[in-house]
Simulated assay, not measured.
Amino acid sequence: MSAVIDELAAGGVRLAVPLLLASAGELLSERAGVLNLSVEGMMLTGAFAGVAGALASGSATVGVLAALAAGLAVALLQAVLSVTLRADQIVTGITLNALALGGTTYGARLLFGDGSAGSVPGFDPLPVPVLHELPVLGPTLFEQSALGYVAFALTAVLAVACARRTAWGLAVDAVGEDPTTADRCGLPVRGVRTAVVLLTGVTSGLAGAQLALSEVHAFSDNITAGIGYLAVVAVIAGRWRAWPTVLACLFFGVVQALQFTAPALGLHLSAPLLTTLPYLLALLAVSGLVGRSRAPSALTDPFVRGG
């Protein structure tokens, strides 16, 4: 039984790593007033570009750089549409996701043919000496790939950076709560919003690389399978705060891992129920039934100077 619990914990954290990365950028973006539903498209494009770059160069590191560039490209398009041109953020995000799904599916047919499994340079687990032998925590935290460790570090840095007591965190919150007043106080509202959208592209592209180059070493159609949407849900379930969002990501990862380990634990849980749980948690978070929750006041509202 202990071995199964270890497997559940390790699998949950491993599955949570892409969520942690994507939600880290999305949290800042939403707190600045921009809802990035296109996180799914950024991740999917990053995963595709990561595999294509790794195959073309024979280097997993080049694959990661390609994934970052691809995620940034989608984010730039999102920023131009939603921040500069003030297009509807929800419609823009869904449209970009559809384009990413169609584009990567077609691109995979052209570049990979029947598939890329087993031939993609990637990142294998790097156990930390001594620490990886600790019960439960060892295989859970200290047997990650290089990208996994980068994800932990980047998530921690962004969690500290977006704290409400830091200058950057205060600027982000000011832009997301009252952009007109923030503009009158000299804050570059559009600049801040563009910056956080681009940051989301970087973290989401890295999340796609983690999924494709660390987890499966391959690309398949719709490899993200809604993980980007889950990242948005994690931010909502975390009530737009850093550490609760991290906990939501870990919970979602464990729920996903339960689909594989539940039989060994003697639990007979339906897969649809486990798939629904994250969304139920987000619904509870915004309903007020489990505590007060309030979204940033200007979330999804385009900024118009003098408006």
Rank of each mutant, 00 (worst) to 15 (best):
residue 75 A to P: 07
residue 20 L to Y: 02
residue 165 R to E: 15
residue 240 W to T: 01
residue 63 G to M: 11
residue 114 D to G: 09
residue 1 M to N: 13
residue 102 G to T: 08
residue 173 D to N: 09
residue 211 L to N: 06
residue 207 A to V: 10
residue 117 A to T: 14
residue 247 L to G: 08
residue 176 G to A: 06
residue 60 A to Y: 11
residue 120 V to D: 09
residue 71 G to T: 05
residue 201 G to D: 09
residue 225 A to Q: 14
residue 213 L to G: 06
residue 14 R to D: 10
residue 260 F to H: 12
residue 244 P to S: 05
residue 66 A to W: 14
residue 76 L to W: 14
residue 75 A to Y: 08
residue 47 A to T: 09
residue 290 V to F: 10
residue 81 L to S: 10
residue 220 S to M: 10
residue 209 A to K: 06
residue 68 L to V: 15
residue 55 L to T: 14
residue 64 V to E: 12
residue 154 L to T: 12
residue 27 L to N: 00
residue 157 V to R: 11
residue 245 T to H: 07
residue 217 H to A: 15
residue 5 I to N: 01
residue 289 L to F: 08
residue 183 D to I: 00
residue 170 L to M: 15
residue 19 L to T: 04
residue 128 V to C: 01
residue 205 G to C: 09
residue 224 T to A: 07
residue 303 F to R: 04
residue 35 L to N: 00
residue 223 I to R: 04
residue 90 I to E: 03
residue 266 G to H: 09
residue 258 L to G: 06
residue 35 L to I: 11
residue 113 G to I: 08
residue 126 L to C: 00
residue 136 V to H: 09
residue 256 Q to M: 07
residue 259 Q to C: 00
residue 45 T to N: 07
residue 78 Q to W: 01
residue 243 W to R: 06
residue 302 P to Y: 05
residue 69 A to E: 13
residue 234 A to D: 01
residue 269 L to A: 13
residue 134 L to I: 07
residue 233 V to W: 01
residue 170 L to Q: 14
residue 295 A to K: 03
residue 249 C to F: 03
residue 108 A to Y: 12
residue 18 P to N: 10
residue 229 Y to L: 14
residue 305 R to C: 03
residue 279 Y to N: 02
residue 231 A to T: 02
residue 286 V to R: 03
residue 190 R to F: 06
residue 124 D to P: 00
residue 70 A to K: 07
residue 70 A to F: 07
residue 222 N to R: 10
residue 125 P to G: 10
residue 223 I to C: 02
residue 274 L to C: 04
residue 274 L to A: 05
residue 77 L to G: 07
residue 132 H to M: 01
residue 14 R to S: 13
residue 18 P to S: 12
residue 36 N to D: 08
residue 78 Q to L: 14
residue 134 L to F: 13
residue 184 R to I: 03
residue 264 A to C: 00
residue 13 V to H: 05
residue 156 A to W: 06
residue 122 G to H: 08
residue 11 G to K: 09
residue 291 G to H: 08
residue 187 L to K: 03
residue 157 V to T: 09
residue 91 V to I: 15
residue 38 S to F: 01
residue 121 P to Y: 11
residue 169 G to A: 09
residue 67 A to P: 13
residue 81 L to V: 08
residue 55 L to Y: 10
residue 168 W to I: 15
residue 127 P to Y: 12
residue 16 A to Q: 02
residue 288 G to F: 05
residue 246 V to C: 03
residue 235 V to M: 03
residue 29 S to R: 02
residue 27 L to T: 01
residue 303 F to W: 04
residue 214 S to Y: 08
residue 93 G to D: 06
residue 124 D to T: 13
residue 82 S to V: 13
residue 217 H to G: 04
residue 265 L to H: 12
residue 130 V to A: 13
residue 208 G to E: 10
residue 223 I to W: 04
residue 114 D to S: 15
residue 163 A to Q: 06
residue 186 G to D: 11
residue 225 A to D: 08
residue 306 G to M: 09
residue 105 T to S: 15
residue 93 G to R: 03
residue 45 T to S: 15
residue 14 R to I: 12
residue 153 A to I: 10
residue 139 P to I: 04
